[in-house]
Design a binder for these strands. Structure first.
Lengths: 159, 159
DNA sequence: TTTTTGGTTCTGCAAATTGAGAACTAAAAA
DNA sequence: TTTTTAGTTCTCAATTTGCAGAACCAAAAA
């Protein structure tokens, strides 16, 4: 019979949750997922239980559960357990920013792939425009390759 | 009294419009905007009038108008006019891929900025996690800086 | 074996988004 | 001056999304 859990948040923390939340919403996450992620990022304890999260953000169980599944599917959040404790402790996965960017790079790789097909099927009459497209295509390639290098370089730097 | 305009699209072109469309929807564009953009990318003529666009995609005037305004606001699409012709000819703006990526980089810069605030307000008790956050922060910085270099390098390469 | 805990899934509603169709507008043409 | 053209804006209906609340479930505790 445990007493009421509580995650105390300062005004500054609440403000940061909103700011971070909006940034992640812009990348396509739902409001609830964005805020759960933000809460785990700013809270004083960085491992929070399901109920602590839902209480701190005033979410329903379903919203909390769905947000957590979503974030876990993206490998942005993981959970640990503690011996003799049935609860899960959710926390931000390390390296999440880099992984997130890697994920977004995939979108550009998709674009690159489709641009190739577009170029292949284009009429040869629009010479200048085709040149433009080829340039976009090469740029995608260049960019993706360079980004991968950036990731590698960073990993080397860390080790 | 001009005859019916027509933008002929092959099956392959229609397929590519859908593929490209989905990719752009993933970045947050509406279905209609994504398809207008895709049409302008794959059509044999790369400058199309309002009515050609709406007819080729079976859109309403309002959907066409809104999609075009949206794309013009992003500077992804522009229009030209021809002497003695009242119609506007819409087309894809050059360098759109790079500009699009630049735009997305801003999101990371925002994240970088907020991470700084998060770090400043964090309890000093979660030593390891704070280290992780600082690393994310530095990585953002590293990445943004490197990306800007990539853009510069590409521009130099072109000229 | 029943109850409690920690969460997931289902149902349904409210709000936001999207786009159709009609009304509108400004400029050019007749 | 009226009509036509080229496009914009308004209104509304149809989806879509996001989440609350309730029902549900499996494992542990009682």
């Amino acid at each position: 019979m445990e007493q009421q859990e509580l995650v105390k948040l300062s005004d500054k923390q609440r403000e940061l949750i909103e700011k971070l939340g909006v940034i992640m919403e812009k990348t396509g996450w739902s409001p609830a997922s964005s805020r759960v992620h933000a809460l785990l990022t700013v809270a004083d304890r960085f491992e929070l239980t399901f109920d602590e999260i839902r209480e701190a953000l005033n979410l329903s169980k379903s919203a909390t559960s769905n947000a957590l599944s979503f974030l876990q599917r993206l490998s942005v959040v993981e959970y640990i357990t503690k011996p003799g404790d049935r609860k899960r402790y959710f926390r931000i996965t390390a390296d999440r920013v880099m992984d997130h960017l890697r994920e977004r790079l995939k979108n550009i790789e998709e674009l690159h792939q489709v641009l190739k097909e577009v170029i292949q099927q284009r009429t040869t009459k629009t010479v200048e425009y085709n040149e433009q497209l080829r340039e976009d295509y090469s740029f995608c390639e260049f960019f993706v390759q360079k980004c991968k290098k950036i990731f590698q370089e960073w990993e080397k730097k860390k080790s």
